[in-house]
């Protein structure tokens, strides 16, 4: 079979399907657009939430190791080198007692208390520290357990600023967001599939006489199927374009400064567009194959 006239016939038939059943095609396009929009929005929100949580996670993966007073600088440098050599440690920064006091004054509002202590000869009670930036949130517990055994470490109630509650909670939030997003996308995808299937089944019903004749004169099943698959793909792709335009338009207009839209750059936007186009084409093609199956079997 010569492919060029065959493709021409298939494309023309697909376009005829859309134009002849314009009302059904339009309804199908709108509903699929809405479902793809929902799926796209779910992906964007999960991505943004993931970004926020990862940002929190990166902050949580900083561990402050408090040092005992009167430890020699040489010992501190040795400890710093041995920590920096570890794979899980990204960087180590030494913070002396004066810097700790300045930070305590600035961040914790301890200025007046520190001044009072200094004026009464009490000195600076805040310890020097090694501030560790770790590769992952999971490494915090390991490093914390390891450094606690060192004799150079401040031997008080809190030798580090490790808070065992924060990390599992963050990890739980990320997991919940990913599962909820996945379920949402799956449910919306299934709805879109059903809608396309119904739409193609309707188109096949409208064209039942044509299908019947094609079968009678000996057209192959794929030849009968292709126009409907193309029709489904066209509806799916058009829906994806409209959904992507709405989604990214909303992001462009309202996104700036909004917490949910943090981290959505051009690259992610392109990924969303590509994802919606692929999802639209796939849903259209798959829904059409399911929708036309009954007509071919009859």
């Amino acid at each position: 079979m010569n492919p060029v006239p065959a493709i021409r016939f298939v494309l023309r038939s697909a376009l005829q399907n859309v134009t002849r059943n314009f009302g059904i095609s339009l309804a199908s396009l709108l509903t699929v657009t809405l479902t793809l929009l929902g799926a796209g929005a779910a992906v964007v929100v999960v991505h943004a939430l993931d970004n926020v949580l990862h940002s929190e996670e990166s902050q949580a993966s900083v561990l402050k190791v408090f040092l005992a007073d009167h430890v020699s600088l040489q010992s501190i440098m040795q400890l710093e080198s041995s920590l920096a050599a570890q794979h899980q440690v990204v960087s180590v920064q030494f913070e002396n007692k004066d810097a700790a006091a300045r930070q305590g004054c600035r961040q914790l509002g301890l200025c007046s208390a520190l001044n009072t202590l200094r004026s009464t000869g009490g000195g600076n009670p805040l310890p020097a520290s090694l501030n560790l930036k770790l590769r992952s949130i999971g490494a915090v517990t390991t490093i914390n357990d390891e450094v606690r055994t060192s004799p150079l470490i401040f031997q008080g109630a809190h030798p580090t600023d490790y808070n065992p509650d924060v990390i599992p909670r963050l990890e739980r939030y990320i997991l919940i967001a990913q599962i909820a997003g996945g379920i949402l996308v799956a449910v919306i995808g299934a709805v879109a599939l059903v809608i396309i299937t119904i739409s193609i089944r309707t188109a096949a019903y409208v064209r039942r006489r044509e299908i019947e004749i094609m079968k009678l004169v000996g057209a192959s099943e794929w030849f009968i199927r292709w126009p409907f698959i193309f029709e489904g793909m066209m509806v799916g792709l058009a829906s994806a374009v409209v959904a992507a335009a709405i989604l990214l338009g909303v992001e462009y207009v309202f996104g700036a400064g909004h917490a949910l839209f943090l981290g959505i750059g051009v690259r992610f936007a392109l990924t969303v567009i590509a994802g919606l186009l692929v999802a639209g084409a796939f849903l259209g093609a798959f829904g059409s194959m399911v929708g036309i199956r009954r007509s071919l079997a009859a």
Binding site: V4, P5, I213, M214, S220, F223
Partner: peptide, 10 residues
């Protein structure tokens, strides 16, 4: 023509 177009389009 339909009978030919759908069985042997070329």
């Amino acid at each position: 023509a339909f009978a030919i177009q759908v069985t042997n389009p070329g």
